[in-house]
Every structure is written in structure tokens, then in C-alpha cells.
Write a protein that binds this DNA or RNA. Sequence first.
DNA 1: TAGATTGTTAATCGATTAACAATC
DNA 2: TAGATTGTTAATCGATTAACAATC
Lengths: 212, 212
Amino acid sequence: MVKKEISKSVLKRLPGYVAYLKAMPNTGSPYISATALANALGMGEVQVRKDLAMVSDGGRPKIGYLRETLIEDIEQFLGYDNTTDAVMIGAGKLGQALLDYVGFSEYGLNILAAFDIAPKANKTEEGKPIFHMDMLESFCKENKVIMGIITVPAAHAQEVCNRLIKCGIKAVWNFAPVHLDVPDNILVQNENMATSLAVLSMHLQAQMKEKK
Amino acid sequence: MVKKEISKSVLKRLPGYVAYLKAMPNTGSPYISATALANALGMGEVQVRKDLAMVSDGGRPKIGYLRETLIEDIEQFLGYDNTTDAVMIGAGKLGQALLDYVGFSEYGLNILAAFDIAPKANKTEEGKPIFHMDMLESFCKENKVIMGIITVPAAHAQEVCNRLIKCGIKAVWNFAPVHLDVPDNILVQNENMATSLAVLSMHLQAQMKEKK
DNA sequence: TAGATTGTTAATCGATTAACAATC
DNA sequence: TAGATTGTTAATCGATTAACAATC
């Protein structure tokens, strides 16, 4: 594996490759070419080849990549193998749905617990603990948590974020539709549904106009 | 308003402006400058000014934009004013959380109903109907639905997507972590959590290395 | 060997940023 | 008028695509 500096655009495409490689139909051969992968995902083959070259050096001319190895290389690159412990703030419906979503473990994410100002239960259906916000600081310190997931209403997100940073969190996954102000060394990744909706809505508007 | 061809990058930033403009503290003045907006959101002021110029012509030198008008202009541009009817396929935990999320109406999205192969109830807590998949075709035709939201497991997403397209759907919001193959005139917008996680995980890895 | 596929180097494209003229 | 802010035109930057040499 060749860990060069990787751009965000490349990084964002990698999970798609892994997902496909893992789920792909058995072709009889243990190898897969960048070309085949590109076709399956509707992407340009040069782009796929370049992306793969960033994270693996197992590509062999005429043959392609050994599927198993390629999966391992990308997963290692993405850090799926060493799990990250996270806490979630806000145990509303969305929060609980995410908490109980088992798929995250595949990506190396382990949500330890949720915190809420007024917990409606002390655990989710799947048994993940839900604590009162008062416990946040001590829990984070004890468990050396470095990632926080924010699923509180927009109005409280910044305040929660500040508190998380004080707890030593280095990365925030933000589901609240607001911009969060943070110091330079903290990363905020916004999961912004409004953004997706804007793209969809624009497409539909364009289609409507066409039809007329 | 000046509707030029707009790029996806610009489009994706617009919802953030609206959100801030709506929630911003009252400054006493009904005006706001691109500079002020940029500072509040941690963005470049030239970028904000250019983005705003795409959707509004209400900017006045020395003064800025009339906040109310600017909100209206962007919202109209994004189509928040004419609502889009959508159906959701998959009424699991995530699906139900999204179904009951009231915030979507703000963005002009109206989820009419959910469909599931084995509905656990006939409506959500908030009273949104959940039907059996058998009803999908007739419902879509009756209600002239043009958008579908997919929250089924990855393995069934493509099949569901095909069925939606047969129902006349023009845009798909895909929460399943798979690539969907669709005809050219259909838009798939992926809400891909794995992508976000990759970005977060990479940041954390980089931070760890730094510390050593 | 011939051909498929890789990885790299160069060209193109698009988006962001910087510089500047216009204006209230 | 002077200065803040707008909108536009030009320069820079980064990412994608195309061309090509290397190789099994």
C-alpha cells in the first residue's frame, strides 16, 4: 500500500469501491480490473485506476487486482480495521435509529452511548445505553472518546459542540442543519440533508420545465 | 432573481445560507452583507458574494442585501416554495425517523407515505401511513409522485429503485449504501454515511500520527 | 508475440480566489 | 466626497480526463 497525500475527492469515492467489491457477484475469477469496477459503478475507468493506485500497489497489468487484497488495502487505508469510539448527543428518533444501526461497525465506528437532556429510556431497543447529559464529561474522559455525533435540534448544536470539544473530542459528525464554529484542529463533517434535497429539487424543477 | 446555469457546488452551499439567514441573531439592521455572512459561516467572502449574485440581484453596494428578500430569493431558487411529494420505501428505524422528521416541510419536501414488505404498523407515531409494497404502483400513479426515498437494506435497493422508476419517479434519494444503476434522465442522490465516516476517520488517523 | 491492463505524464476542464472597476 | 460593498473580469489552483509508455 502506498500512502501518499490523498485528496478529499478521492477519499470520498473509496467507500463505494469497498462496498461494491464486497457485494459483487462471483465472477469465477479472484481478480478484478479497474475497468470492470468503473463500468459497474458508472464511473470513468481512468479515475478508478488512479484512485486505486493511491491505496494499493497490487495491480498487475493484463490481470487487474486481487479482489480480496484490494478490499483489505482500501479498508486499511480508511481505518476500518481499528475502531473509533464515539458518543452521540441527542437520543431523539434520528439519534436512536443511528444508534441501533448495526452497519457502522463495518466502517470501524463504535457508538458507545448516547446522551440526552431528558432521556426517555435508559437504553435503546438494541441495548445501547442512554445517559443524562450530566454524565457526558466523565464518560468521555474515562473512555477516551475522540468522536462526537450530534443529533440534537439546530438551536442546541453549537452549545453541545463546545461541550464536546471541552471533553477532548477531535472530530464531530454533525446531523444538525447548522454551521458549527470550531477551532482549526477539530473537524466537523456535516451530514446535511438540506444539501441533498437542494440537488434533487433542482433536478426535478429542470425536468418539469423540459416537459412543457 | 437571475437564474443562470448554476453549478452543483454553488447549489450545495445555498441551503446553508438560508439556514443561517433565518436563524441569525437580530442585528438591528434589516440588511446583511456578503462579508458578514461569510464571516459567520467561516467561508471566503468572494465565494459568498458570487454565490448570492447567482440567485439574487438585490445586493446594493455599501448596504448589502435585504435579509428578508435574500431568503425569499434563495428559497424560490431552491424550490422550497412548491412542495414535492415523495414516497419512502422501507419503514425500518431509519425510515420511520425520517418519516416523522417535521423539518423536511421547510425544504419543500412532503413524504406522503411509506411502503414496506412487512409493515410493523399501519402508521408512524406522527400518523404517516405505512402501506404494503403491493400498493406502491397504484399509490404513485394516483398521487403523481415524482420522488422516491430508499431506506431499504442495500441488497434490495436496486430492485426497489427499478420498481420506482416504473412508477414514474424522476428522482431518488438513496440511503442504502450501494450504487444504483438508473437511466440517464433519472437522478440518484446518495446520502452516503460511509463517505462522511471516511473523511472523519482520515482526520482522526492524521491527528493520532501527529501526536506521536 | 500480441493485447489487455496498469501506472504515469501531459492537457483540459471547472471551480475558487484575487484584482479591480462600478456604485450608493 | 470617501469608503464600504457590490458584481465582474482575470489568475490560480485542483481535479478530471486524455495520451502514452511499461509490463505481464
